[in-house]
Design a protein around this nucleic acid. Structure first.
Length: 635
DNA sequence: CTTGATCGTA
């Protein structure tokens, strides 16, 4: 606990200052080697048993300096002794000294001592309020930070440009948009409304609460934007599922002559990872080197994630192996990377390595990665084992995500009774992810009965999501119940719901090419369809018959065939094939799941065209090569 | 003499 608190501490003094403080502290402890400053402390005392009391501070300045060095070094013991002496020396009610003590207690995890000291102070200035608010904003309970902020008004203390960013940080963590907006209203029009720190806090608070537009309004209202505010805004886009805008803003930042920092790169690389924009990510990798961040572990970890999400798991692993110190996030990124790609063995091997090295302890995210690896590998037994390992050995409380993995893997295996029992035994309310996982299993095994139940729950939870209706409709269609399928579809249209339009995109030479179903808007559309037809000819020679099951409309077979033919991922692949030299790896991203027919077709294409094709689905990756897919038809 | 903002994993 201690090192993490210390490492978070931002008030690191300069070397010279630190040296001076160390000297002061050691002379106070009576173990001085270096000569103490002549003006404040006299000669080094002879060694004695209670040596830390040997050179007793006398003046206010001495107390202040020594306390400051305690804060810098986190010396709680010495701080406590000083605290006691302050009380008897009549300096107990001094706010400056008390502020330092509050700071020290809070930094060492004794927020309640800090609070006690604070409550006992006869007079409190804004500094004192700020350090305590900071303690709560950092360590929690964060509600207390907000409460303190509100309490300032009653005590007639005016918050300042330091108070607001702290309160906003607490609001961001609590997702307390109400208080956040109050702060915004209160500062706007005042001099603090112009402060970059306050504005950066506002941007971050809005971003964490999911209000990107409010964040943007604040951002563009700032006259002088510094690197941090740019970074906050880039992160705001990235954290709210708008990676493309994050990438564009990074470019804007450079154009505006603001020098990117490592935070800029990390946020932008993470955005590139989310957009599966490999060329852009590699470009950023290069910038990272040029700007001198190339050797930093933090940068490398974000690159591990980016390369893994862009389909280059091997490159990700090389970078992972280069890390000088492997933090928990690094392990998690790599394990999850393997998991997404269905490399269950590698994921589990790495997890074991993590346990053997034992420098970091796995957390709930690690287990999300491990369980999803088991899930994508269809390893029911292993999934159950790791779940109990997590609960029994690591005492990690399972979240809904962990349960979702288990339900998914059980559903896939057709073990519906176990899956349903698991759901019923959960300590929390099952969410849409759980029912969605169950429904998916029902679809694979054509379990209409349980599928209907899962869908009913799904419609209750998210009545606006058309995807649920489509799934049920598919179940009916697959079991030949066309009337029911049509009924669900009608229900969907009656409620005014529209299916999410499937789209796929591929990035070539730094440009993104997107395709919708049956899209003919691309400049090279004619060539794309010619290529598709050519491939289809070769495929039927190999005995391929289109599977039109995924089309649940009650239309003629020819039309159905055309509907699957125009699926967006095929267009993107065909475009990739005609625009790159033979043998180039293709990476296509799709906003939904790949349909069964496309999956079969892409396997064949990979063989006919002798290409490695990677499809990034909403859930996972499919690596097609030589007529096979890494998912082994299990997804 | 004190106090503040951004960043990588699900």
């Amino acid at each position: 606990m201690l090192p993490s608190i210390l490492s978070k501490s931002r008030n690191v003094p300069s070397h010279r200052r630190r040296r001076r403080l160390r000297r002061l502290l050691s002379s106070f402890l009576g173990r001085a080697v270096a000569a103490p400053p002549a003006t404040t402390i006299t000669a080094s005392p002879p060694p004695c048993s209670n040596s830390h009391l040997a050179s007793s501070p006398r003046s206010y300045n001495q107390y202040a300096s020594i306390l400051q060095s305690c804060v810098a070094a986190g010396s709680l013991r010495t701080g406590r002794q000083l605290h006691g002496r302050l009380l008897v020396s009549g300096l107990g009610s001094d706010t400056v000294l008390a502020t330092k003590l509050v700071d020290l207690y809070a930094a060492r995890g004794h927020v309640e001592h800090a609070r006690h000291l604070f409550d006992g102070m006869p007079k409190r200035n804004v500094f004192l309020w700020n350090v305590l608010i900071r303690a709560y904003a950092r360590e929690g309970p964060r509600e207390a930070a907000v409460q303190l902020y509100r309490g300032m008004a009653e005590h007639g203390v005016e918050p300042d440009n330091f108070t607001y960013p702290l309160v906003l940080k607490a609001c961001a963590a609590l997702l307390d948009l109400k208080t956040g907006r109050e702060v915004h209203e209160r500062v706007s029009g005042t001099r603090w409304g112009e402060d970059v720190f306050v504005c950066a806090g506002l941007v971050d608070m809005y971003a964490k609460c999911g209000c990107v537009d409010d964040a943007r309004a604040v951002f563009y209202g700032i006259a002088m934007r510094d690197a941090v505010v740019w970074n906050s805004m880039i992160a705001a886009y990235g954290q709210n599922g708008r990676p493309m805008e994050a990438l564009l803003l990074c470019r804007d930042m450079a154009r505006n002559g603001v020098r990117p920092t490592i935070a800029t790169l990390m946020s932008t690389i993470s955005a590139a990872a989310d957009a599966a924009a490999l060329p852009r990510g590699r470009e950023l990798h290069g910038f990272g080197w040029r700007w001198g961040f190339g050797q930093q572990d933090k940068l490398k970890t974000s690159l591990v994630d980016m390369y893994a999400k862009s389909g280059w798991v091997q490159v990700a692993r090389v970078l992972f192996d280069q890390l000088t110190k492997r933090e928990l996030v690094s392990w998690n990124a790599m394990i999850c990377g393997y998991g997404m790609h269905g490399h269950a063995d590698e994921a589990l091997k790495l997890f074991n390595k993590m346990r053997v090295e034992a420098l970091v302890t796995p957390d709930n995210i690690t287990f999300v990665g491990v369980l999803s690896a088991c899930n994508h590998g269809g390893m029911v037994k292993e999934a159950k084992y790791f779940f109990s390992l997590m609960v029994d050995v690591y005492s990690i409380k399972p979240t809904v995500q962990h349960f979702t993995c288990l339900v998914d893997v059980l559903g896939h295996a057709g073990r519906f009774e176990e899956a349903y029992d698991l759901i019923k035994g959960m300590s929390m309310e099952p969410d849409s992810g759980i029912w969605g996982a169950l429904l998916n299993g029902c679809k694979i095994h054509k379990n209409v009965e349980l599928g209907e139940l899962a869908l009913q729950k799904l419609i209750e939870l998210e009545p606006e999501d058309a995807g649920n209706y489509v799934l049920l409709s598919n179940i009916y269609a697959q079991s030949g119940k066309w009337e029911k399928a049509a009924m669900v579809r009608k229900l969907m249209t009656n409620r005014g719901l529209k299916k999410i339009i499937a789209c796929s995109w591929i990035e070539l030479k730094g440009k993104t090419h997107g395709f919708l179903v049956g899209d003919a808007s691309h400049p090279r559309s004619d060539e794309i369809y010619v290529e598709l037809e050519r491939l289809e000819g070769l495929m039927s020679d190999a005995g391929y018959v289109p599977d039109t099951m995924p089309v649940f409309h009650d239309v003629g077979d020819d039309e159905k065939r055309n509907m699957v033919r125009g699926h967006s991922e095929r267009l993107a692949i065909a475009f990739g094939l005609i625009s790159t030299p033979p043998g180039t790896k293709l990476l296509v991203t799709k906003n939904l799941r790949v349909c069964e027919d496309c999956h079969a077709v892409i396997k064949l294409i990979s063989q006919i065209a002798q290409r490695e094709i990677i499809i990034r689905d909403v859930n996972r990756y499919h690596h097609f090569a030589n007529g096979e897919c890494s998912c082994k038809d299990y997804w």
